[in-house]
Design a protein around this nucleic acid. Sequence first.
DNA 1: TTCATGAGCGACTAGATAGTCGCATATGAC
DNA 2: GTCATATGCGACTATCTAGTCGCTCATGAA
Lengths: 248, 248
Amino acid sequence: MTLETATEAPGPTDATRTQKRAIRTRNRLMKAALSIFSEKGFDSTTIEDITERADLGKGTFYRHFPGKDELILDLTEQSTAVLTQEIDKAATTAQSTQDLMNAFLSAHRKFFMVHREEFLLLFQSRLVLNLQKEDTLSLETPFERYLETLQRHIARFIPSPVNRAKVRHLACAIAGFVSGFFSFALVGLPEADIDLSLAPLRQTFVSAASAFLFEQKATKVMKGEEESASPSLSATVMRSLSHAKTET
Amino acid sequence: MTLETATEAPGPTDATRTQKRAIRTRNRLMKAALSIFSEKGFDSTTIEDITERADLGKGTFYRHFPGKDELILDLTEQSTAVLTQEIDKAATTAQSTQDLMNAFLSAHRKFFMVHREEFLLLFQSRLVLNLQKEDTLSLETPFERYLETLQRHIARFIPSPVNRAKVRHLACAIAGFVSGFFSFALVGLPEADIDLSLAPLRQTFVSAASAFLFEQKATKVMKGEEESASPSLSATVMRSLSHAKTET
DNA sequence: TTCATGAGCGACTAGATAGTCGCATATGAC
DNA sequence: GTCATATGCGACTATCTAGTCGCTCATGAA
């Protein structure tokens, strides 16, 4: 790209004024696009929608992006970067699997609450990936990096012979649960209470994920044993539930 | 609609040939639209895309639907009907909360595996609902019915004073988890393994959801109206939920 | 048979949109 | 100051699309 024209020493200070202006413009375009995508959706957004909100000429867009597809790729990378950054920040200090799961939840919760537009963007690019299209671009790799971030943190709590497949399943489950829950909460719960609604589910989620990790470890050690539900859930609790009276 | 023109006795046999033809045509349009939506997405699909795949003239579309928005509303209702039907079929025989959660998982798994196009359609209409748009049509009510189906089955296993807010939270969590998991599995796991990947998570999921129900019962018994987990959320959520059917 | 009704059709219009291109302006090297 | 380069601009064209309208054909009532 033309932005790399600087011969060497690409520090933040020695970017020429022209380059800095170009970067500013590019950022304005991305910010405007992110904003409009979260309102009317990627496909319904026109290039002029974007340049108009960014208060720029239409031609300027094409100076910075070949087309809309490259823009959503950049935005997806930017958004997953924000999310993984939150995850890393919250998860590095975790001392137990409970800590880790709590950190995951907090990071995603913050992402949903504070970076709503990015959340909606990832929802959309994930949809694009799920559609039965041909090309798909390289839109998959940001999500791959995101899942790998989860896996990396999870792996810290798994003893030596790590079952990578199971770790990945858990990563998918975690990622799926939080994004799915928030997206359904947005439909089925009053907006103001979505954040709070996560609280009562928190302990359950943490127990479940920890139990999955435990089972993962346990099956390695002792095979054939019937898996106990969870270290934090007593057998009596489970039993009492299975015989619960049916009443409406 | 013109389909209701029949004066009385609208049995399946006594529909006039003209009416039957119209219904066939309408179904062909919906089928074609569902198929294309799952390939290129709702917004990128043109009316002519649909009529072409249905092998019909463009004007025919407008005889059956005012526009694309009404079409996706109908398709969303149809798709949630398929899903809730699967849920009802699987869940009515449940004898315990474990049974119930297993039934939920099986029904959603089947929906994802067998009715992929409907799954992708619901993913899209849910996105439309999440976007920060103005109108939103009445696209929300099919999802409301879906969540109520889940709640109805859950409520069978809750003793008399049902905490509707918590039941709804669980419904959102279940719906969110399965749709989110499948959608992430589609990105992060080999297609052939998606079905199998749910198995190791099954027990964990069932335990977690059952535990949540137990906690629901316990808090209800102990505190009556107040919730210990999140006191600040009870009032608003409870109020809005108790009028869920009538509110806009 | 005749006629009325409604389904199906596709050319057409009006409007919107993607992408281009030549020009203006700002910057930076000399 | 002068020139070269890069950014920003918006009018323009070529294409695409939504929605309409008058026509044909099938059906069904009389």
